[in-house]
Simulated scan of single mutants.
Amino acid sequence: MTDFKVAIAILAFVTLQRLAELAIARRNTRRLLARGAHEVGAGHYLLIVALHGSWLAGLWWLAPGRPLIWPLVVAYFLLQPLRLWVLASLGGRWTTRIIILPGAPLVRSGPFRLVRHPNYAIVVAEIALLPLAFGLWEMAVLFSLLNAALLTVRIRTEEKALQASR
């Protein structure tokens, strides 16, 4: 299989994965809101969607046909079981938004025993690794910096909301 076809397969996988996650997140968000939860930080959510959408669109535009750096491709795919571990640990509380369910205890099982925000750590690695796997270091740096700025706002917002809900 040529690098072009491998790139298309990788990008199709990532795109389908993200679309499936959005569907899961929407379902979980609806269920949480129906149980009395509320959203916090909705103002920056569209920026996060724009960032991730732009990252993926940029990869579709720039990556096909570029030579692959296989150890980085493998590293990217080794993150995926960790992503699933986070989703499984949070179960119906996993969403792409900050949804606070009053009175619900923090999840402290799975990767949350080891890292305060494991999903964000995985996303940080993914945003850097996938462009680097295609030799797109400028894209990796740009989106990593933008993501760091957004995560700074998001984590502060989430932490403040979690503290207030206790």
Rank of each mutant, 00 (worst) to 15 (best):
residue 17 Q to Y: 12
residue 18 R to T: 09
residue 18 R to I: 06
residue 18 R to C: 09
residue 19 L to I: 15
residue 19 L to F: 13
residue 21 E to I: 07
residue 22 L to S: 04
residue 22 L to Y: 09
residue 24 I to T: 07
residue 24 I to Q: 01
residue 24 I to E: 03
residue 25 A to F: 04
residue 26 R to Y: 07
residue 29 T to D: 05
residue 29 T to S: 13
residue 29 T to E: 15
residue 30 R to N: 14
residue 30 R to P: 01
residue 30 R to K: 15
residue 34 A to F: 06
residue 35 R to H: 12
residue 36 G to F: 07
residue 37 A to S: 11
residue 37 A to Q: 01
residue 37 A to H: 00
residue 38 H to W: 11
residue 38 H to L: 06
residue 38 H to Y: 15
residue 39 E to V: 11
residue 39 E to M: 13
residue 40 V to E: 12
residue 40 V to G: 00
residue 40 V to P: 00
residue 40 V to I: 12
residue 40 V to W: 02
residue 41 G to R: 04
residue 41 G to V: 08
residue 41 G to S: 09
residue 42 A to R: 15
residue 44 H to G: 02
residue 44 H to E: 05
residue 45 Y to N: 02
residue 45 Y to V: 03
residue 45 Y to A: 01
residue 46 L to P: 01
residue 46 L to E: 08
residue 46 L to A: 14
residue 47 L to C: 09
residue 48 I to K: 04
residue 48 I to Y: 05
residue 49 V to D: 06
residue 50 A to R: 10
residue 50 A to N: 08
residue 50 A to G: 13
residue 50 A to M: 12
residue 51 L to G: 00
residue 52 H to S: 05
residue 52 H to I: 07
residue 53 G to D: 07
residue 53 G to C: 09
residue 53 G to A: 08
residue 54 S to Y: 10
residue 55 W to P: 00
residue 57 A to H: 08
residue 58 G to D: 03
residue 58 G to W: 08
residue 60 W to K: 01
residue 61 W to A: 08
residue 63 A to F: 02
residue 63 A to Y: 02
residue 65 G to I: 14
residue 65 G to K: 12
residue 66 R to K: 15
residue 68 L to V: 13
residue 69 I to D: 01
residue 70 W to Y: 10
residue 72 L to A: 07
residue 72 L to K: 03
residue 73 V to W: 03
residue 74 V to M: 06
residue 75 A to Y: 11
residue 75 A to V: 06
residue 76 Y to G: 01
residue 78 L to H: 08
residue 78 L to T: 14
residue 79 L to F: 05
residue 79 L to E: 06
residue 80 Q to Y: 07
residue 81 P to T: 13
residue 81 P to V: 11
residue 82 L to S: 04
residue 82 L to V: 07
residue 83 R to P: 04
residue 83 R to Q: 12
residue 85 W to D: 03
residue 85 W to Y: 12
residue 86 V to S: 01
residue 86 V to A: 04
residue 87 L to G: 00
residue 88 A to K: 15
residue 89 S to H: 05
residue 90 L to C: 02
residue 90 L to R: 01
residue 90 L to D: 01
residue 91 G to N: 11
residue 92 G to M: 08
residue 92 G to Q: 12
residue 93 R to V: 06
residue 93 R to Q: 10
residue 93 R to T: 11
residue 95 T to G: 00
residue 96 T to L: 06
residue 97 R to H: 14
residue 97 R to A: 07
residue 97 R to G: 04
residue 97 R to K: 15
residue 99 I to S: 00
residue 100 I to L: 04
residue 101 L to Y: 05
residue 102 P to N: 13
residue 103 G to I: 12
residue 104 A to L: 11
residue 104 A to D: 14
residue 105 P to M: 11
residue 106 L to F: 09
residue 106 L to K: 07
residue 106 L to Y: 09
residue 108 R to N: 06
residue 110 G to M: 05
residue 110 G to Q: 03
residue 110 G to D: 04
